[in-house]
């Protein structure tokens, strides 16, 4: 990690040993570059084994506008995959296709194939409501419901018709899973908006895992949070990857370096004739490999901070 170009851009204080950075997760996130990353701790096979999702030649259109094209990706089971790239490269668009949230955008259309557990995600008999019960999502800005903390967690199980033996227990488990239980156990009846931004985002993660999903999509989950809250969410993501497949969109390359097992780099290029900018997948590799020796010139330029 130390040789990665992104580490060179980090503040010099990152070079000094910072014991506080490990464990507590309360240090400046830049310091995390020196702490063992998940990618460093775990053996990542060269190709995703037993992939949960396969994307083949995926392109997304909004009306006549092609937002992104040529996306071929395999998402490994219980891995963290980061989608990175400059603004407008289509990474969030791709993410929203994976649980059919793009269906809500009028005129959105997906070409190519997205396969989830050997089923075509866009097959005619597939119900997007059912898809979203298996593939949860955490949004850019924390969006708790204007209800109590308890009801925020219980909402998903209630609407999906889950019949837990004890709802109280399910709520506790979800909150523990999102590392929030100790902070809120005495105020479960309080409105979720009384929590801080970072707590709200962890509440949203707890809400998501309460319905027991298979895959969790995260759309820049830390972009509205301060460095301390960001570090806690990143620690949480690494814990959650023991049980869930996580796909995260991030603007923050250090974040991808810290948490992701694999990274997909997207960029946007203007069409030679129409001048229309379309996003495309440039490179997909294990995070360490991509940050140490990118194969594509465009990836190298981006991660060394030459554009974007």
């Amino acid at each position: 990690m130390d040789n990665s170009p992104s580490a060179d851009d980090a503040p010099t204080s990152a070079d000094a040993p910072q014991p506080a950075a490990t464990g507590s997760g309360l240090a400046d996130p830049a310091l995390h570059l020196d702490t063992p990353t998940r990618a460093g701790r775990r053996e990542i096979p060269e190709q995703p084994k037993d992939p949960v999702m396969l994307l083949r030649d995926v392109a997304v259109y909004y009306g006549g506008f092609r937002a992104v094209k040529d996306v071929n990706l395999d998402f490994g089971r219980r891995e963290i995959t980061a989608l990175i790239g400059p603004s407008g490269c289509g990474k969030s668009t791709v993410l929203r296709c994976l649980n059919r949230m793009n269906d809500l955008v009028r005129g959105a259309r997906v070409a190519g194939s997205i396969t989830y557990h050997d089923q075509d995600l866009y097959g005619p008999k597939v119900d997007p409501i059912v898809v979203r019960r298996s593939i949860g999502m955490v949004f850019q800005k924390p969006n708790p419901f204007p209800k109590s903390i308890y009801d925020n967690i219980a909402y998903g199980p209630r609407v999906t018709g889950m019949k837990p033996g004890s709802m109280d227990e399910l709520v506790e488990q979800a909150l523990r899973g999102a590392a929030l239980w100790d902070e809120v156990k005495d105020k479960l009846k309080q409105n979720a908006y009384s929590l801080s931004g970072g707590q709200q985002q962890r509440l949203c993660i707890a809400r998501c895992i309460a319905v027991n999903p298979d895959v969790i999509l995260m759309d820049e989950p830390c972009s509205a949070l301060d460095p301390i809250a960001t570090a806690r969410i990143e620690d949480l993501m690494i814990e959650l990857a023991d049980r869930y497949t996580i796909i995260i969109v991030t603007h923050n390359m250090q974040q991808a370096a810290r948490v992701a097992d694999r990274t997909a780099f997207f960029t946007a290029e203007a069409d030679a004739t129409t001048g229309e900018r379309t996003g495309l997948l440039v490179e997909y590799d294990r995070t360490g490999a991509m940050f140490h020796n990118p194969r594509d010139r465009r990836t190298e330029d981006y991660i060394s901070g030459r554009f974007g």
Binding site: N99, R132, R133, F145
Partner: peptide
């Protein structure tokens, strides 16, 4: 806000 609708739909609510 639409974020409330999105949050609900993303959990599998109709």
């Amino acid at each position: 806000p639409d974020s409330i609708r999105a949050g609900s739909l993303a959990l599998g609510a109709t």
